[in-house]
């Protein structure tokens, strides 16, 4: 690899060989690339190594160094963020433009070199500003707040007069709240399907064999009672003691006792 990294001559002067501090093991190289905050930071480092102002940037030389760098990283299979590759593309573009003769139409376009210089300058300012921030004395590190025990506070807080209506009002709100939290204890009702079967059968037989389905249910029975009644009806039906009859679709359903009047089946 070192063959690719021969010393370059710029303006007749030997400028830079591939950074000497890169001839270190790959793990260390990984650490090295991680030192940079991104492509701008790496680029700035390369420029600064030449000890020149960003304005005097030698695009061709810097591009070569930058791309050598990226190639080295890739050869060592170090994952580089996409931003590094994008910067390599930008540098190559600038370099190739500089090789071409300038035409008047180029002047009107944004010069990518100018743009790059502007970004490098701005980034350098920010970098230095960050360094300045780091040096400013700050709490927890350079300055500490005091930890003073406060005196015992012996204050007479005037007790307000409490009026009776306030108490009553408070009490009523307690009651209201209590209502919301009232518990409903549910107890098992001793409802037996067998009992209900007997009472239904009695009713059906009493009413000359026919009774409206709905009349077999009592609203007071509650949900559970209604369910028990229904189960009782099903059971009676299964045992062949009653029969459901309906004149037509959606008509009222009637219940009749089967053995009471079997031959009188005009509903069927």
């Amino acid at each position: 690899m070192s063959d690719d990294l021969a010393v370059a001559l710029v303006d007749g002067a030997p400028v830079t060989e591939f950074p000497k501090d890169l001839h270190i093991p790959p793990e260390a190289l990984k650490v090295f690339i991680e030192l940079f905050e991104g492509p701008l930071d790496l680029l700035l480092y390369l420029v600064r190594r030449q000890n020149i102002d960003v304005l005097e940037i030698e695009v061709a030389e810097i591009t070569k160094q930058y791309i050598d760098y990226i190639n080295l990283m890739e050869a060592l299979e170090i994952d580089l963020a996409g931003e590094y590759l994008a910067m390599a593309a930008t540098l190559t573009e600038i370099k190739s433009r500089m090789l071409l003769p300038r035409t008047s139409s180029d002047e009107e376009e944004d010069d990518p070199k100018e743009e790059l210089i502007r970004r490098l300058q701005e980034y350098e300012e920010i970098k230095l500003a960050a360094g300045a921030l780091e040096k400013i004395p700050r709490l927890e590190r350079d300055l500490h707040l005091l930890s003073v025990e406060k005196p015992e506070i012996d204050q007479d807080i005037p007790q307000p007069e409490v009026e009776l209506k306030e108490v009553l009002f408070a009490f009523s709100s307690v009651l209201k709240r209590a209502e919301m939290f009232a518990q409903h204890r549910v107890e098992y009702e001793t409802l037996s399907v067998r009992d209900r079967m007997a009472s239904i059968l009695t009713k059906v037989n009493l009413d000359s064999g026919f009774i409206n389905f709905f009349d077999l249910f009592e609203a007071d029975d509650g949900r559970l009672g209604i369910i028990v009644s229904f189960l009782a009806l099903m059971e009676l039906s299964r045992e062949g003691l009653i029969e459901f009859v309906q004149r037509e679709a959606y008509a009222e359903i009637h219940v009749r006792a089967l053995k009471a009047d079997v031959e009188n089946n005009r509903y069927q």
């Binding site: 905050e37 920010i126 970098k127 500003a129 960050a130 360094g131 300045a132 921030l133």
Partner: peptide, 9 residues
Amino acid sequence: LETLAIVVY
């Protein structure tokens, strides 16, 4: 710190 510096300036 760089991010903070950008917000500051």
